[in-house]
Design a binder for these strands. Structure first.
Length: 399
DNA sequence: AGGTATTCACATGAAACTATTCTCTGAGTTAGG
DNA sequence: TAACTCAGAGAATAGTTTCATGTGAATACCTGT
C-alpha cells in the first residue's frame, strides 16, 4: 500500500473521539468534581490575599491522582481573575518541582521563579546567592502579594535538603513590600516530619488532607470526561465501570483511570474497532506498563544500562541472585563494551535505583555467616524482558 | 545444650573529586577615524 | 578609541570515588553440666 493511500484511508476513517484533548493529562476541566469541601477550605485560607493580607502558609497532602493539583490550579485561576477585576496586585505562581532540569535544584527553582517575572537567568555560571539577590530585587520592585505553589515539594527536599524552603520562608521578614505565601503540595504524608523544625512550623500553619476518590466517584468523573471525549455510543457498557474499579484498586488514582481510558480508546481506534471494548482496557493496561518500563530504560546512562543488562543475563540462569553476582558479570561486560568499571559502591546504588523503578525486586537479607546482601529477582514479564534485552544490546553495541 | 563472639558481604552515608557546561571579566587585537 | 575575540576564573550539576561505619544472623567458640 502506498503511503499516501494509507493517509487517505486514515482520514476517511471516522474517529471514535470527538475531543481527545479532554482525556490528555494536560487537560484542565472547568469544574472539579467531589472536591468542593477542599476547595472551600483552601479558598478560605487564601482569600485574605485578595485584600492584600498575607494568608498563612499551607500544606496539602494526598495520594497521586486525587485532585490536589487540579484543585489548587482551579483556585489560583479564579483568584487571579478576581484580582484582575478588582485591580489587586496579586500574583500566583505554580511550579512543579519534579520536572527534571526545570525546577529540581535550588538554583533552578529560583531561576524558574525569576522567569515568572519575565526575566531571563542563565542556566549556569552564576553563584546561587547572586540569583537570590536578583530575585529579591525583582520582588521589591514588584510590590505584590505572591502565592507560590510548589507541587511535589518532597522531590525537591529529597534531592537537596530543606535549605531553600527555609530561605523562602524567611523572605517575608527580609522584604518590605512584597510578601510571599507558600503552598506545598506533596503526596507523602510524613513528609513534614523530616524537615527542619523551623521550616516545619512556619510552613505548615495550615494543613489539608485530600482523601482519595472512591470507585463510584471515579466512575462519575470518567463518565463526565468520556461524554466530551468520545462520540456517543462508542463505549461498550461496563468499560467505564471496569476502568474505575481498576483505578480504585490503585488507591483511587483518577489520573491513571483517565490515562487508561484514553489509551484504550487509542488502541481501539488503531485496530479499526468502531467501539471500545473491555478487552481494549486490558490491552491498554499492558501497554501503559510496557511503555513505562521501556521509557525508564531508554534514557538512562550507559553504566546503568550495563548493570541492567547484566541483571537480565543472570536472570536467565536463575530466579534469585545477589549483588555480588551482578557485579562480577558486570565487570566482564564492561571489558567487552570498553566501559570503565565502576566501584561496587556505585553498582549498589544503581541496583537500588533499578528497584525503585520497579524493574527488579530487591530485598535486603542476611545470609548469616555468609554476609548481608540484596536478594534480587526480576520483576518483568517475559515479553518485556526480551524487548529490553534487544534494546540494551543495541544501545551497548553488543550483537 | 545454651550462650556469646565472630565474621561475612555487602548496605548505607558523607564528603570529596571530575568532567562538562555555562557566564563573566579583562587583556590583547583589530578596524576605523 | 570603540568593538571584537579569546583565554582563564568561577559556578552549578551529574556521576563517581574514597573513606567510614553499620548490620543480621549463620557459624565458631566457649562454658558449665
Amino acid at each position: 500500500m502506498k503511503i499516501t493511500t494509507f493517509f487517505d484511508n486514515f482520514l476517511k476513517k471516522k474517529s471514535i473521539f470527538s475531543n481527545k484533548k479532554v482525556l490528555q493529562s494536560s487537560y484542565f476541566p472547568d469544574n472539579v468534581l467531589y472536591r468542593e469541601e477542599q476547595i472551600m477550605e483552601v479558598a478560605n485560607i487564601l482569600a485574605p490575599a485578595l485584600r492584600l493580607e498575607i494568608p498563612s502558609n499551607l500544606f496539602i497532602f494526598g495520594k497521586t491522582g486525587c485532585g490536589k493539583t487540579l484543585t489548587v490550579k482551579h483556585i489560583l485561576k479564579s483568584m487571579e481573575e478576581t484580582a484582575q477585576k478588582n485591580n489587586t496586585s496579586l500574583k500566583t505562581i505554580y511550579i512543579n518541582c519534579k520536572l527534571k532540569r526545570v525546577a529540581d535544584t535550588e538554583y533552578r527553582l529560583i531561576a524558574r521563579l525569576i522567569k515568572e517575572f519575565n526575566q531571563q537567568i542563565p542556566s549556569t555560571g552564576l553563584p546561587t546567592d547572586e540569583v537570590y539577590n536578583i530575585f529579591y530585587n525583582i520582588l521589591e520592585k514588584e510590590n505584590k502579594i505572591i502565592i507560590l505553589v510548589l507541587d511535589e515539594i518532597d522531590q525537591l527536599t529529597k534531592k537537596i535538603g530543606d535549605e531553600i524552603l527555609y530561605n523562602l520562608t524567611r523572605i517575608n521578614s527580609e522584604l518590605k513590600e512584597a510578601q510571599i505565601c507558600l503552598i506545598g503540595v506533596s503526596n507523602r504524608l510524613f513528609f513534614l516530619d523530616n524537615l527542619d523544625p523551623r521550616v516545619k512550623s512556619s510552613l505548615s500553619k495550615e494543613e489539608i488532607i485530600f482523601p482519595p476518590y472512591n470507585a463510584l466517584q471515579i466512575q462519575t468523573i470518567l463518565q463526565e470526561r468520556a461524554k466530551q471525549a468520545f462520540k456517543p455510543e462508542i463505549l461498550k457498557s461496563g468499560v467505564i465501570e471496569k476502568c474505575a474499579a481498576y483505578a480504585a484498586r490503585e488507591h483511587g488514582d483518577a489520573r491513571r483511570a483517565i490515562d487508561l481510558l484514553r489509551i484504550a480508546g487509542e488502541l481501539a481506534e488503531r485496530s479499526g474497532s468502531p467501539t471500545v471494548e473491555i478487552y481494549h482496557l486490558d490491552d491498554a493496561e499492558k501497554k501503559i506498563e510496557h511503555d513505562r518500563v521501556i521509557n525508564s530504560v531508554v534514557d538512562q546512562p550507559k553504566q546503568f544500562q550495563n548493570v541492567l543488562y547484566s541483571t537480565l543475563l543472570i536472570a536467565k540462569q536463575k530466579n534469585i541472585f545477589f549483588t555480588g553476582e551482578i557485579y562480577d558479570l558486570y565487570k566482564k561486560i564492561c571489558k567487552k563494551t570498553k566501559l570503565s568499571i565502576l566501584t561496587q559502591r556505585r553498582i549498589s546504588d544503581i541496583i537500588a535505583e533499578l528497584d525503585m523503578l520497579g524493574l527488579i525486586n530487591a530485598k535486603i537479607i542476611s545470609k548469616g555467616r555468609y554476609g548481608r546482601t540484596r536478594e534480587i529477582s526480576l520483576a518483568l514479564t517475559e515479553d518485556i524482558t526480551i524487548k529490553i534485552n534487544e534494546l540494551l544490546e543495541k544501545s551497548l553495541g553488543l550483537s
